[in-house]
Design a binder for these strands. Structure first.
Lengths: 348, 348
DNA sequence: GTGAAAGCGCTAACAT
DNA sequence: ATGTTAGCGCTTTCAC
């Protein structure tokens, strides 16, 4: 009686038999190791094609101790309760899309696959850690939504290869990339002033986020250097609606405003209609400068003058840094800081 | 001489030794198989905790032939040349963010991890296929940007577990979820007419996309049923800027327009400023209805009246369908169609 | 209920 | 340059 054999895919053994060589030789050919006679190489290749062989990754990982994938984790802190909504909410922000795209773009030609993970609760963080320890991924790139996120420290303590998008709030021995937020804010201040604005306010990001703080501090310092020691500020949350609300408050308190630096484009997109609604023409009455140069910058009227945040390049560098740590586990953490640039459009 | 042993993680063997049982027993406990004495169970658990054991996934996959992950592939067709830009461009669209979030949200509690892949070139498609055949993922959920995408057929032919977001352009024996586009468009038509609009046009999506065609056809049929056999249409590409351009064209040809159905919110977001710029107040002079109820709907002024596309629910169902096929490989393809709903806000 | 043992498919010494 | 062999860590019959 013939047992019903499932058509499981051919193994190295099958190829070896077909080519009349040993498994080791086939393995060498598959892995591109030289020291294989070119005639044999040819017949092995043919056997591979004939059998339709594809190497089994689990078997390979078992011996090489390499998964060939990395975790791409979007991390928050203390969002217990809203867990199911977290992935969707985060992916709706063009910023995260750019990070993910940049990382994926770098990894792809290198044959490394990103596994998407979300870590906004203690439980989810433990899962990420277990995932890495299990060897399901060789390391993690992390983009945090909160300053208090404990994951970077956990990763560092566990000695797992990791790299962060943005400098951690508290110092952690871990590699990261960031943009020079202060320099970007200075670009905005200088521009607004150069355009003749004199009553300038700002809408900041959430002040528990280091990046938001740095942009605000950088803006204030630059303004102070030009003789404007006081800059009114309304705090937002980096979202469209928080931008609207912050603009309302700022305008209520400072109706004479003629310029505003908004800490990201999404909030600026929200601020624009509010200005219009209150009869302020942009850029005629009020100049607006955003930050990020995300898709939102060109998806509003007038198109935003903004500070370019080279997210995709940074994300690629982030991935490169991680892969470096995966290659050489001992390596010391590095950080790479990118320079922002002003992109002048119509809003100022 | 003591060789410097890397602190590799403990194995089943180590736990077994610590608990004074065999590997098999530990394995049973780990996998929650009954028939294990509860006293032993307890000591095994303690040993696991003491040693900090985590099972090695590669080893497990090798024998179970399950990866515990699925490919989440964003697929296009014939975008050779712009490959590096594809991931970023796609992730910038809130629609894809919602799909990814919905899929990830469903998979997460089930311990299945999504591996992000992009398949816009023949090469990339071959990689996806190889990835699945290698057993690196147990199946694939696919969201296509183009009608001519050959990946669904390739997947079906290879007999790999897969499920699609949106019905394929040509019939393919594969499971999918979709929304009733025609019904959604009818909702928009009925609403516009009920609001007293009589000179109504539409901005469609790219007409090579089945969903765009269905929305247009559904809209025209509903209008015709109410005695409006002719509905002017401008074709867009589902992006903000294409929405602007289409609105310009539509308005140029039909200045008397008093209502417009836009096939997605992103294009509607682009259309709004154009109407305003041409002196048409929304909703006073022109009523606008979008489609999707994405974040763009509430991120424009006035907020969009739109047709809700239950993307997150659909994505969850998509993932469920896939997992079902992974469990029982023989299963016949199924399709699940969701009902849209009208969400009335301020634009009409 | 528990253990012994085989083997999943592969790579990497080591031997030739 | 090629083959032989010993595992990688796990699950799973099969005896007991």
């Amino acid at each position: 009686m013939r047992r019903d054999v499932p058509p499981s895919s051919p193994t190295l053994e099958d190829v070896a038999r077909a080519a009349g060589v040993s498994r080791a030789t086939v393995s060498r050919v598959v892995n591109g190791i030289r020291n294989v006679d070119s005639a044999l190489q040819e017949s092995v290749r043919r056997a591979i094609a004939d059998t339709g062989y594809v190497p089994n990754r689990a078997a390979r990982s078992l011996v090489t101790r390499r998964a060939g994938s990395v975790a791409l984790v979007v991390s928050g802190a203390g969002e217990e309760g809203a867990e199911h909504a977290f992935p969707g909410r985060v992916l709706t922000d063009p910023f995260f899309g750019r990070v993910i795209g940049g990382v994926a773009g770098f990894l792809r030609p290198r044959g490394v696959h990103p596994v998407l993970m979300f870590a906004e609760t203690a439980r989810a963080r433990a899962e990420v850690l277990a995932f890495l320890r299990q060897g399901e991924a060789d390391g993690a790139v992390l983009v945090s939504t909160h300053a208090e996120d404990p994951l970077p420290e956990l990763l560092a303590e566990a000695g797992l290869p990791a790299a962060l998008f943005a400098r951690p709030a508290r110092p952690v021995p871990i590699s990261y990339v960031d943009v020079d937020h202060r320099a970007g804010a200075k670009l905005a201040a200088d521009h607004l002033l150069a355009r003749g604005r004199r009553r300038i306010g700002t809408i900041s990001g959430p002040l528990d986020v280091p990046a938001a703080r740095a942009r605000l501090a950088g803006f204030r310092d630059a303004m102070a250097a030009h003789g404007h020691p006081y800059v009114p500020c309304a705090e937002g949350g980096f979202t469209y609606h928080s931008g609207e609300a912050a603009m309302e408050r700022l305008l209520a308190e400072h109706p004479g405003l003629d310029g505003v630096f908004v800490a990201n484009d999404l909030m600026a997109q929200g601020a624009l209609p509010v200005l219009r609604h209150h009869g302020r023409a942009v850029p005629r009455d009020v100049g607006v400068v955003g930050f990020d140069d995300s898709s939102a910058a060109t998806a509003c009227r007038p198109a935003l003058t903004t500070v370019r945040h080279p997210v995709e390049d940074m994300a690629a560098e982030l991935a490169r840094l991680l892969l470096e740590h995966v290659e050489r586990p001992g390596r010391r953490p590095t950080s790479v800081i990118f320079e922002p640039a002003l992109v002048v459009r119509d809003s100022s």
